[in-house]
Design a protein around this nucleic acid. Structure first.
Lengths: 222, 222
DNA sequence: ACCTGAACACCGTTCAAGT
DNA sequence: ACCTGAACACCGTTCAAGT
C-alpha cells in the first residue's frame, strides 16, 4: 500500500483494458469498480479521477467493443457491392461481440453514444445510401440493422457462460436441440414440431438468414 | 419482528408482484432480494423458500411481463388477416413493455423460457403458418420477430428514466432532436443531415416502420 | 491532479435455529 | 415447510487527507 499521489499507471484506456479482461475471464458481475481497481493494484476510489461513475466506465467499454470489432474499412470500401459491405460489417461485428460472452448485458445496458458508435452509424448510412436507401429511410434502416444486431447478440449471449469463452457453435446447437426435444408436444405442438430448426436459432446461420430477410425488406439489392 | 414460522403471506406470485412494483417505482437496481423482502415485511432470506436465487426471480418477472402484455387472443383470432394479427401483437407488446421503463434490462438479462414465453412463441408460429410462412422458415421468422421486438424495447429504454413512468412520446422525440442537433456535421455529416429522422428513431412510428420492413422481407402478405 | 484510508449504505447468499 | 437472526464476502460512492 504505497503513499497517495500520482503514480502514472492509470488512464482511461488502462481502466477499460482491465474492465474488459475481467468481463472476459470472470463475467459481467466481476466487472466492478472494486474489481477493476484491484486488478490494477490501486485503491477502489482511484478510478473516480478518470470516470465520474460506473456507468461512464460501461459506456467506454461499449465504445471500445464497437471500435475493436466493427470493420469500418470493409464497410467504407465503395468498390464493393453495398449489400456485401453491410453483410461483412454485420457478420464480423456479431462474431466479435459473441467472442465476449459477457458483453451483451453491457451493450444493451449502456447507450451507444460514444465516438466509435457514431462512426459506425455514419459509415452505415453511407453504405445504405450507396444501395439507394437514402434520406429518412436510410436513417431508419441503419437503426433497424443496429437493433437486429444487438438484439441477436443479446439473446444469443443469454445461453452462454459469461465466465468462459464461447464453445464451438455446433456444441451450442446440440445443447439447444436437447432442450427443445424436451418441449411437451401436447402443450406446444408447433414448437415441438420445429424443434430441429429452433435449435439453430442461435449461430451464424440464423443471424445471416435474418439479416438477409431484413435487407430484402429494406430494398437493398442483392 | 415476529417469531419464525409460516405466516401465509408469501408466494411466488406475491414475490413477483413486489418485484414489479419496485421495478416500476424505483428502477431495476431497487429490485433486489433485500428490497423485495422489505417491501413484503419479511426477512431477506425468506424469499429463498420460493426461489433458489435472484436469477430465478428475474425469470419469473420476465414471464409475468410477457404474459401480461402479450395479447394472445388477438394473435390467435384466425378470422383476422395474419399480418394484422402479428402487427397487433407486436405493437401491443412493445407498448406494454415500454410502460415498464426498467423492464428492458431484465428482459434481455434473463432467458425467455417461461410458460408464457413458450405460449407466445406457439401462437406466433401459428399466425406465421397462416401467412404461408411455415416449417423451418416459420421458426426462424418467429425468432426474428422476437429479436426485433426485444432489441427495440431495450434500445429505446436506454433513454428512459427507469424510476419514473415514460414521458409522452413527443417529449422524448423532442429531447432526441436537441441531442442530434448538437452532432458536429464536420465529423458525422450524414448523421447530422438526417438528424430530424434520427430523432424519431424511438417511438411507435419507427417500430412500426421496421416491423413492416421485416414482415415484407419475411414474405408475409400485406 | 492524483491517489489512499476509512467509512456509509447497500448487495446476494448461507447457516443454524425456532415454530 | 416456513420463517428469523446473524454473519460472510461482497458492492458503488463519498469525504478528508496526504503528495
Amino acid at each position: 500500500m504505497p503513499k497517495p499521489g500520482p503514480r502514472g499507471i492509470l488512464s482511461d484506456d488502462v481502466i477499460v483494458d482491465a474492465a474488459l479482461l475481467l468481463l472476459d475471464t470472470r463475467g459481467p458481475e466481476a466487472m466492478s469498480m472494486r474489481g477493476i481497481a484491484t486488478q490494477l493494484g490501486v485503491a477502489p476510489n482511484a478510478l473516480y479521477t478518470y470516470f465520474p461513475d460506473k456507468a461512464a466506465v460501461l459506456r467506454a467499454v461499449v465504445d471500445r467493443l464497437i471500435g475493436t470489432h466493427a470493420d469500418l474499412s470493409a464497410l467504407a470500401d465503395s468498390s464493393g457491392l453495398p449489400r456485401a459491405r453491410i453483410r461483412t460489417l454485420a457478420l464480423g461485428l456479431r462474431a466479435g461481440l459473441i467472442r465476449h460472452p459477457g458483453a451483451a448485458s453491457v451493450l444493451l445496458g449502456a447507450p451507444m453514444d460514444g465516438p466509435q458508435a457514431m462512426l459506425l452509424g455514419e459509415h452505415l448510412l453511407s453504405a445504405l445510401a450507396d444501395a439507394g436507401v437514402e434520406g429518412p429511410s436510410g436513417a431508419r434502416a441503419s437503426y433497424l440493422i443496429i437493433v437486429y444486431l444487438l438484439g441477436s447478440v443479446a439473446l444469443e449471449a443469454l445461453e452462454l457462460d459469461p465466465t468462459r469463452p464461447a464453445p464451438p457453435e455446433e456444441d451450442r446447437i446440440a445443447a439447444r436441440r436437447q432442450a427443445f426435444d424436451r418441449v411437451p408436444a401436447e402443450l406446444f405442438p408447433r414448437t415441438a414440431a420445429e424443434a430441429a430448426t429452433m435449435a439453430t436459432y442461435i449461430g451464424t446461420e440464423q443471424f445471416t438468414w435474418g439479416l438477409d430477410r431484413l435487407l430484402d425488406g429494406l430494398g437493398v439489392p442483392a
